[in-house]
Design a protein around this nucleic acid. Structure first.
Lengths: 106, 106
DNA sequence: CCGCTGACTAGACAGCTGTCAAACTAGACG
DNA sequence: CGTCTAGTTTGACAGCTGTCTAGTCAGCGG
């Protein structure tokens, strides 16, 4: 966690990211993509992992994309998704309590 | 990010945490608490930092508490809040892309 | 060109969320 | 006990969200 209080705009941007993470389906989607060795997963593979309909999965992927957490590309018939590590790292760092722990004990 | 796909229950629990983080006001509340040297902040100090009403701040603090991100205690007239670092760390670790990067390149 | 499959968009709808005003509870202080 | 302040709870309401069905678009194979 950051040692200084967040500004309104910064907080709003980061909140968009966390909001996208605040759904079990999207969290599982991300983990499925991240766990894939090549770093890329076809939508059809993702859809198969859930009991939800295609449009619903598509909706969740769109939310993740708009939050800047993943990106995608169409290759022939299939669409592939991958994670954007820098964005993940930015959110992860914000929650890193070691920074504030150091600051608090210093 | 974890190298293995998340189970449904694990994903649901973690999603509850991220969902609580998915609001600018709550994110700023957390940063205000985390930035405080003693690690504890009185509700009145938090309320003063926003243009929102007391009940709204109270509501957001309740959400953070139910998500396991903070805890509170009444001392006399005032109520103090502090962060629960272990919970923050668990969420932070999940987003740590360095793990998967290592796994992917290995 | 026609049909097939994979993926997305549009629209609808129940359920949740953020906000406020009003009412309530817990201590402190005479 | 009475009253003042700090915080929470309740109830209401607009707006957003997750899900589905139905319809649409993009490529591939004949």
């Amino acid at each position: 966690m950051v040692t200084e209080a967040l500004g309104e705009e910064t907080a709003a941007d980061l909140a968009r990211g966390f909001k996208a993470l605040g759904d079990p389906v999207r969290l599982r989607l991300l983990s499925l993509i991240a766990a894939r060795a090549g770093g890329e997963v076809c939508v059809c593979d993702l859809t198969d992992a859930f009991t939800l309909t295609g449009p619903t999965i598509s909706h969740h992927l769109k939310v993740l994309r708009k939050a800047g957490l993943v990106d995608c590309q169409r290759r022939g018939t299939w669409v592939y998704y991958w994670i954007i590590p820098s964005r993940m790292a930015a959110l992860s760092q914000l929650l890193d309590t070691s920074t504030i722990t150091v600051a608090a004990t210093a």
